[in-house]
Design a binder for these strands. Structure first.
Length: 217
DNA sequence: AGGACGATTAACT
DNA sequence: GTTAATCGTCCTC
């Protein structure tokens, strides 16, 4: 069996829609806090940066989304709903602000640590089922925003791309559909997941809600 | 300075 | 199926 080549930054300098399916099956390794947890990605979403109304980067750079406008291979973490962190892999060329949201995975190393970090998980399949749960398994937070996932010394690393849809020895069935929890650009089917994976999160359409009319004056 | 809302989750009925 | 939790960010005034 040939030794796998080291992942390069140029392999990640492609659009999020192209990269997302290639990340399925990839390993993300965390050694945060001196504890090893490694996850195999089973569900991701592409966010096409400045061209995508659903992206955090759509309205231009801010203090929060600055990392998205930088080079590929860096981690973009954000805080949401007042309590959860989620994680993305920045891709494409600087300025495009494309990124892939890590939505779900299975724990392949550090199961005991993952369970300790996710006490609410009723079963192994729930450990990293959902973007905030995945981030919690890997102990990701604000301090990891902007981290270089390709550095061998980083506490969070992207170990390789996934096998992809065209692997000859054992085809990997990849499914594509609408993204979860967004209210705009819902017609873009940029969520990708592995078929028959119990760790894939439930689809919840973005809540339709009329925008409150601004008082005229 | 104020307020609406969110790339969610867990706990309910 | 529904909903509370909870606060950083961003938009508006």
């Amino acid at each position: 069996m040939p030794r796998s080549e080291r992942l390069t930054r140029s392999q990640l300098a492609i659009s999020s829609v192209l990269l997302a399916p290639r990340l399925l099956g990839a390993r993300v390794r965390s050694t945060v806090g001196g504890e090893l947890v490694e996850i195999r990605l089973t569900e991701v979403e592409a966010y096409e940066g400045i061209d995508d109304p659903a992206s955090h980067a759509y309205r231009g750079p801010t203090a929060r989304n600055g990392v998205m406008f930088g080079p590929a291979g860096f981690l973009y973490t954000y805080f949401t709903y007042g309590m959860h962190w989620c994680a993305n892999i920045v891709c494409a060329e600087p300025g495009r602000a494309s990124a892939v949201l890590l939505r779900a995975g299975t724990v392949v190393l550090g199961h005991e640590t993952a369970r300790a970090r996710r006490p609410a998980a009723r079963s192994d399949r729930d450990l990293a089922r959902g973007p905030a749960r995945l981030a919690q398994c890997l102990a990701l937070g604000r301090e990891h925003n902007g981290l270089d996932l390709l550095s061998t010394r980083a506490s969070v690393r992207l170990m390789s791309l996934g096998p992809g849809p065209s692997l000859r020895a054992g085809p990997v069935a990849i499914v594509q559909g609408p993204r979860v929890g967004i209210r705009v650009a819902t017609d873009r089917p940029w969520r990708f997941w592995l078929a028959d994976e119990p760790s894939v999160s439930a689809f919840r359409p973005g809540v339709l809600k009329a925008r409150a009319a601004r008082p005229a004056h």
